[in-house]
Computed example of a mutant assay.
Amino acid sequence: MEIRIEALQIAESFNIRKFRAEFRVEPFSGTTSEVFYTLEDTNRFLYVFDYGVVVFGNYDAIAKSEFINFIKNYAVHPVELNLFEEYKIVTDPEAQKALVKDDTVTIPQIDASVVHIVMLNTGQSVALEYYEILTDELITSSKHYILELEQSGRLSISKKNLLKYIGKVLNVKNSIVDNLYILDDPNLVWDNEELHLLNRRLKMNFDINPRFKDIDYRLQIVEDNLTLFTDVLNVRESARLEWIIIILIIMEIAIALFFH
C-alpha cells in the first residue's frame, strides 16, 4: 500500500478556529494552530496548519481542488506562489522499523500516528521554503541599496519608503517567530520512542533545523542593513536640519541689517 503526501502553501495563515467549526469533521487530533484528520471512509488524511499550509494524504486531483477552494474561505493573504512538497509512505510487512529516504518512508503497516508525523514534517518543509523565498527577496532588495551606497555614496530611498521596508522586514520576522513551534516535537512522540526516532529522521531528511537557522541568519543580515540605512538617513536628516538652521540665521541677520 502507498500513501501519496502532498503539502501546499496556500496562504500566509488560516483561521483555524473558524475552519474547524465549519468543516464539521471530527479530527484525529488538533490544537488552536493545527488540525489533523483521518477520513477512514475514503482512506484519506488531511492536515491543516495555521501558517497557511495544507497537507493531503491520498487525495486525487478533484478532491484536492475542491478542498483548496473550500479552505480559501479561511485564508488570510493567499499566496500565489506554486509551493508544494511531495512525499510517499510505503508499507512493507517485512520492514522491522521505519526506513526514511529522500522521497519515501517505508513502514511495516499504516498507522495514523506515523502518517501524522510524516505529514507534519512535509508541511513544515513547505512553510520553510516560503520563508526562504521571503527572506531572499529582502536580501536582494537590501543589496540594491548597498550597491547604491558603494557606487554613489548616498542613499536615494525616502524616509517613508524606508519605514515601509522596515515594516516588511519586521512583519516577516514576526511571522517566523510566531511559528517557531514548527520546530517543536509534537506531543505524540514524547512517549513513543519509534515515533520520536521517525520524527528526528524526517527532520534530518528535510533539513528542517538547518534551513530554519539559515532563515534566521539571513534576517539578521537584513536587520543589520536596516540599521545602517537608518543611520545614513538620520545623518542626511541632521544635515538638512543644519542647513535649514543656517539659512534661517542668515535670513535673520540679513533682515536685522536691512532694518538697521
Rank of each mutant, 00 (worst) to 15 (best):
Phe28Thr: 02
Asp41Thr: 08
Ser125Met: 01
Ala21Lys: 02
His144Thr: 09
Asn174His: 14
Gly30Asn: 05
Asp216Ser: 11
Val235Thr: 10
Arg24Val: 05
Val90Arg: 12
Val169Trp: 01
Val118Arg: 02
Lys159His: 08
Val172His: 08
Gln124Ser: 08
Lys88Gln: 14
Gly57Thr: 01
Phe70Ser: 11
Ser113His: 12
Ile10Arg: 13
His77Glu: 11
Val76Arg: 11
Leu8Arg: 10
Gln96Phe: 06
Phe206Thr: 09
Val53Ala: 08
Gln9Pro: 03
Asn73Leu: 10
Ala61Gln: 02
Val90Phe: 05
Ala95Phe: 04
Val35Tyr: 02
Gly30Trp: 05
Ser175Trp: 02
Leu162Thr: 07
Tyr59Pro: 10
Asn179Trp: 00
Ile246Pro: 07
Lys88Pro: 04
Trp190Gln: 14
Lys18His: 10
Ile182Asp: 00
Ala256Ile: 06
Leu180Glu: 04
Glu252Gln: 03
Val115Ile: 01
Thr32Cys: 03
Asn179Tyr: 01
Thr104Lys: 15
Ala11Tyr: 00
Arg200Tyr: 08
Val169Tyr: 03
Pro93Val: 06
Thr104Phe: 12
Glu22Phe: 00
Lys168Val: 03
Glu6Gly: 04
Asn58Tyr: 03
Asn73Asp: 14
Met1Leu: 10
Arg236Asn: 11
Ala7Met: 04
Ser152Ala: 09
Thr122His: 00
Asn179Lys: 11
Tyr37Cys: 13
Phe206Pro: 13
Ile16Val: 15
Phe45Cys: 15
Gly153Thr: 08
Glu137Met: 02
Arg4Pro: 05
Leu149Gln: 12
Asn161Glu: 12
Leu248Lys: 02
Leu155Gln: 06
His77Val: 07
Asn161His: 05
Asp178Arg: 08
Ala239Lys: 13
Ile71Ser: 15
Val235Pro: 08
Arg17Asn: 13
Pro210His: 09
Asn171Arg: 12
